[in-house]
Amino acid sequence: MTLARVFSVENKLARIAREPGGKTVEEAVKGAEQRIESVRERCVAALPLKAEQLSALAGGDRGAPDILEGLYNLGNAIFGVAGVYDLDALAEAACSLCDLLQGFRDGEPVNWSAVEVHVDGIRLLAGGRTEGATVILDGLRKVRARFTPADL
């Protein structure tokens, strides 16, 4: 005997969204893009602060139980905001750090030098440094490739 139950539920979102009025999807998308752009300054200004928090955490107590999770969460937060505002180099560096940390969280031995190199790169890029970004990213890619499987 199975305890699974399969049933239909009313799609209330569809009922509301089909009511008269509202916006065309084109207007809605444009409206959203404008609203997101309106908070660019505030969100981008917070990135160097997040990078400093990352640096402080990486330089702190490395035996703390949640340190890898904390670093991963901060890297992830930087990745999310940088990607929205087309800060591609910073987004790639943060994503690379997350790749690295994901492997360490899954049980690989932690290589703190690899983490430090990433944190330093993220600090430079979050501070608005664009010259040398290609060199920084090349270096991070090589470090990442040493410690993570190719399909990550």
């Binding site: 979102l13 509301i16 969204a17 089909r18 009511e19 008269p20 009025g21 509202g22 916006k23 065309t24 999807v25 084109e26 809605a28």
Partner: peptide, 10 residues
């Protein structure tokens, strides 16, 4: 593009 979506009361 012209499909309407009303999320105002959602």
């Amino acid at each position: 593009r012209q499909e309407r979506v009303n999320l105002s009361t959602a």
